[in-house]
Simulated assay, not measured.
Amino acid sequence: MKTILRSGAVAAAIGVGLSLAVLPAVPAGAAAAIRVPCNDITALKTAINNANSSANAGRIVLASHCTYNLTAPDNPDDGLPEITGNVTITGRDTTIRRAPNATQDFRVFHVVSGGTLNLNSLTVSGGANAGRGGGIFNANGTLNLNRTIIKGNQASQGGGIFNLSGRLNLDRSTVERNTATFGGGINNNGGGTVIMKGGSLLNNRATGNGGGFTNAVGNASLESVSVRRNTAPVGGGLHNTSALRLTSSTVRDNIAVSGAGISNDSVGSLGSALTLVRSLVTRNTAITAGGGILNEASPGDVTLTDSRVVRNRPDNCSPAGSVPGCTNPTSTVTPPTKQLPPPAKDSKSRK
């Protein structure tokens, strides 16, 4: 039996045409999907509350090619109810955003301890939070993103996503044009785990460190990921103070004062480990040093396996000799003296 939440006859009529093709396979005995008409925020909140309390995993299907505008928060910090259960939200070219005319700052999603949120074929945008996670805050929960875009959000830490002691999985997803002080795109902290396969970290900006991604305290793995055109004073593309592994990934065209491609640093005596396997760091630009990789970790290691760090300015790796297998050009390249440029105004994301 289908469950349809409706706020009126017109909304119900719209809901009939929702996309069914993007629904994942449904296990036997699972509850029926809750279908929410286009931009019916009341129905969406009710659907999340019902999914949270479902004995089985709660499944929500949104209208395809639709934008759900959140004009006011559901609670002081979040646009939608907190995720406490096992909730799956599926769309098709569907956006959930903090509306441009919203008068209050709030993030879009908040996954609390023990909660699981699965997002399929959605865009999450416009979120704003003075603390953690402009788009999504995953606090000791599980967040799975499949072909999802996190775009145009802002916060102090983790402009797009803040992952605190939780598990974050991104599959063929894009994090772009988000802004924060630390971790413009993603901030991983508190021993959290991040696994990103496919997709990109694109045009994000930090005013502190980690334009694309800050791996502060935790484990992170990027496989077949493109890290491009991110900016920050330190670690334009990536900033690592823990354990970070790149496999078959590209770090390119990022800009920073130091550590334009990747900054590898440490917190106290914890140390850090940066490993690149079949990966490429190229055409990144630093104003001072570490055009490709800045290795300031002590203790700390950078390991290159079948990987190249080439054609970065003003050097490939700094300090010289700190990264085995990475050499600098014999001729000096004068770095630019101008200030960091703002992120690009727009770019089309691959889904």
Rank of each mutant, 00 (worst) to 15 (best):
R205S: 14
I262T: 07
S224I: 02
E223K: 01
S242G: 04
L202A: 11
G236R: 15
R229E: 12
R229P: 00
V251A: 09
A220V: 12
S200T: 10
T207Q: 06
S226K: 13
S248G: 10
A232Q: 01
G237L: 00
G235Y: 00
N254Y: 10
A243D: 15
A243V: 14
S200G: 11
A220T: 15
H239R: 08
G261A: 07
S221D: 11
T231K: 01
T247P: 04
T231C: 12
M196K: 03
T207M: 04
K197P: 05
I195C: 01
A206M: 05
T247Q: 11
R228A: 15
M196S: 10
S200C: 09
P233N: 02
A220Y: 06
S242Y: 08
A220N: 04
I195P: 05
R205M: 14
A220I: 05
E223S: 13
S226N: 15
G235T: 02
N204W: 00
S226I: 14
G236Q: 14
N230R: 11
N189Q: 13
F213H: 03
L201F: 11
A260Y: 05
S226P: 05
I262S: 01
M196C: 06
A260H: 08
T193D: 08
V194E: 03
G236D: 08
G210E: 04
S258A: 14
L202C: 01
R205Y: 13
A232T: 00
L202P: 01
V257N: 04
N209E: 10
R205C: 03
R205F: 14
N219E: 15
S249Y: 05
V227H: 06
G235Q: 05
I255H: 09
G210W: 03
G190M: 07
S221V: 15
R252C: 01
G236M: 12
A232F: 07
L238G: 09
A206I: 04
A216E: 07
A256Y: 00
G235S: 06
N215S: 09
A256I: 01
D253P: 02
M196P: 02
G235V: 06
G236A: 15
G211Q: 00
V194W: 04
F213A: 02
E223T: 14
T231S: 13
T231W: 02
S221K: 08
G208K: 10
G192D: 00
T247V: 13
V227S: 06
G208F: 08
N230D: 12
V194R: 01
T207E: 06
N219K: 10
A232L: 03
V225R: 07
N204Q: 07
L238H: 01
I255C: 00
L222D: 02
A232K: 05
G261C: 09
L222P: 07
N189G: 06
A243E: 12
L222Y: 14
L201T: 02
R229H: 13
A243C: 03
V251P: 03
A256V: 04
R245D: 04
V225Q: 00
V234Q: 10
N230A: 14
N219I: 11
R205N: 11
T193V: 13
N230G: 11
G191I: 07
A260K: 07
G237D: 04
G192Q: 09
S226F: 03
N219Y: 14
E223N: 15
T214L: 15
L201Q: 00
